[in-house]
Design a protein around this nucleic acid. Structure first.
Lengths: 370, 370
DNA sequence: CATTTTAATGTAAGCGCATACACTAGAAAG
DNA sequence: CTTTCTAGTGTATGCGCTTACATTAAAATG
């Protein structure tokens, strides 16, 4: 690879000025067709590729947006990677449930897909990075190194410490997905789903179609607005039926299969299971399904179980899980869309969007379906 | 947001030269500690964030690498996205098998994860884009817009037309994942898995532990080296047992569940099922499982079925699928790792790495496991 | 045919940084 | 006390573009 050709090389080759070369690329309609052809020929001949850095610098915009995803698992635990070609293929026996899969990542992947898709359509480049929860003090190097290079940021809730967000917000538009940093809501654009409405609709369904009179709620420790709304929806559902929310038991654990498993198992032992166990997310619901199955309790005949999120596993579990599906891909697309609007009008008030969800009825409440 | 502060602002504030400001950021050890403090204070005060564009331009490198993923489905079919907040939550009944899921994308997501991870560790930014198969003629705008901004590229096989790759290769290091463009192998660094060895090991297992004497191979139309190697491994396995590869039937369809379903269904009707049906990928194998289940044929008692890839669905199917797991995340990591090496030594000969795979034994060959 | 308008191109000034080189003052060496 | 180094800092140039402005030629207008 010889030295990369620049505008100057192209200009010389085509015997025009560098301004004309630039115009051929940016505003072709402003240059005479014959000239354009000459220049394009030179570009092809030299294999010229403009420098993004120079362009961004001169144009004062990068046409790139950044996306922060939450930390996956324990990044710290991930060691160096060695490039060694091994020679044998292992054989391992893979027992069922071997993997307590952290399939939250799937959630992120879908959001990412949406961002990818929409930025592609908008002609923007997308930069992706893993957020660091780390200590809040100094802005972590990596968050910085990305922020330098983009016009705006999209941040999934809980990927980046609030304090860091506050700092970044001073220099860049930031669109939050799911939740804005507490006490700074008015500073950020926000895209989220209608958690309250989704849960409400689900609860109404349980009343109307299944004559459930008694339900319990299972959730994690997280008190994010995002999550709080789901509980609100639950309570409203109860009230709409003339029931007192405080009468419905609420079980708090963690948003994981294993913890939910334990809770459900102990409820089963004590014989204190409700008619319907409404879970704040799918992971918990899946744990519950396993626990009830192990305890010999039939779902949905004896107990109805519901989840929230619409992760892939929920559609292949035994029985398949009734859940409220979040439009993850659309979340990503909406975030990009919002960011683009924001870049267009930096001064307009915060944009907040709530995307509709979809209650998906499956066997964990409906009984056998074909 | 007022005008963004620059080195000049910081320099004035700290009463030093811009060179010193730059040094504080790049080579802190070369500036007196007191000066450093003053400058850092100014940086914080102003909320200064260096410009990536300017930096990259001056330093002649972006510290960013690009990743091209294959087109998902029909991008063309994806319409405009409207930012409307709807008010209701839909309720839909979700029948089983509603989704002929394009879970290849999961494969990409894992590779992406690996790239993310490793570039994070290497202190590089990662830019992600969807490749365009499109017409080969002119380099699509989007591939261009990304290539301008990165130091090197990682490309999943079949994301970008070979001709475009040939063009890009002239200007940038390009690391291929899975397959290099035909006839240009020697131009690209390559990271792939040991397909041949994996398939061979799997076939050996079927011979040794299951006394299978008669197997058939099912594959798609793709004749990529990547895929060809799997068949090679299959043949070698047969030969190692003294069998003639040509004696084993080979069924060609497409790498999809639905096509595989049809093939297997018709084999079942004709009563020409082999003892073991070795599939070139998991999607096909899953289709086969469904077909056999519908035909009332028991797996693995009557027919053994195996896949290749290790996608998530394969671990939750009924029965769970024996397969050869590709280390997708490691593929991504290895690709980044390779690219970094390449950037370090542009002139060294092509780097080709083969990562080991893992045969995962599950119920589709082993019978009931706990 | 002189004058105004328009289209096409060129000239030149940055964009915000990194860095080679120059410079200074004090420390080390003689 | 002079000379040589060295550490710390500043000066100035250029990275490869975009774009405001100037310039010129051709077309439109009266």
């Amino acid at each position: 690879m010889a030295r990369k050709p620049t505008v100057y090389d192209v200009a010389r080759e085509a015997d025009v000025s560098i301004a004309t070369v630039s115009r051929v690329l940016r505003t072709p309609e402003r240059v005479r067709p014959e000239t354009r052809q000459t220049v394009l020929k030179a570009i092809n001949l030299l294999g010229y590729l403009p420098s993004g850095s120079a362009r961004s610098l001169a144009a004062r915009r990068t046409n790139t947006i950044g996306l922060f995803l939450p930390n996956i698992d324990q990044l710290d635990q991930i060691g160096d990677f060695e490039l060694v070609s091994e020679d044998a293929a292992d054989i391992v026996v893979d027992p069922p449930h071997a993997q307590e899969n952290n399939s939250d990542s799937l959630y992120f992947d879908e959001v990412l897909r949406g961002c990818e898709l929409e930025s592609w359509r908008q002609g923007l480049s997308l930069m992706v990075s893993i957020g660091l929860k780390g200590k809040d003090g100094d802005i972590p190097q990596l968050i910085n190194s990305m922020s330098e290079k983009v016009d705006g940021l999209i941040v999934l809730a809980r990927s980046v410490p609030d304090s860091v967000l506050a700092f970044l917000r001073k220099r860049l538009p930031v669109v939050m997905i799911a939740n804005a940093p507490v006490n700074q809501e008015s500073e950020f654009d926000l895209v989220r789903v209608s958690n309250r409405k989704g849960m409400y609709t689900l609860v109404r369904h349980l009343f109307e179609k299944h004559q459930v009179r008694q339900m319990a709620y299972m959730t994690g420790m997280d008190d994010s607005p995002d999550n709080g709304k789901r509980y609100e929806g639950f309570c409203e559902g109860l009230k709409s039926e003339g029931l007192e929310p405080s009468a419905a038991p609420i079980y708090r654990g963690q948003f994981s299969q294993s913890v939910a498993y334990q809770i459900a198992a102990s409820l089963a032992r004590q014989g204190t299971l409700p008619q319907a166990l409404v879970c704040a997310n799918d992971q918990m619901a899946l744990g519950v399904l396993r626990a009830l199955s192990d305890a010999g309790i039939s779902v949905p005949d004896q107990v109805i179980v519901t989840g929230f999120d619409g992760i892939k596993e929920a559609s292949v579990s035994q029985p398949r899980l009734t859940t409220v599906r979040q439009p993850m891909v659309d979340l990503g697309r909406a975030a990009v869309s919002t960011l683009v609007r924001r870049l267009g009008s930096p001064e307009c008030p915060p944009i907040s969007t709530e995307l509709p969800v979809q209650v998906q009825l499956r066997e964990s409440c409906e009984g056998t379906m074909v």
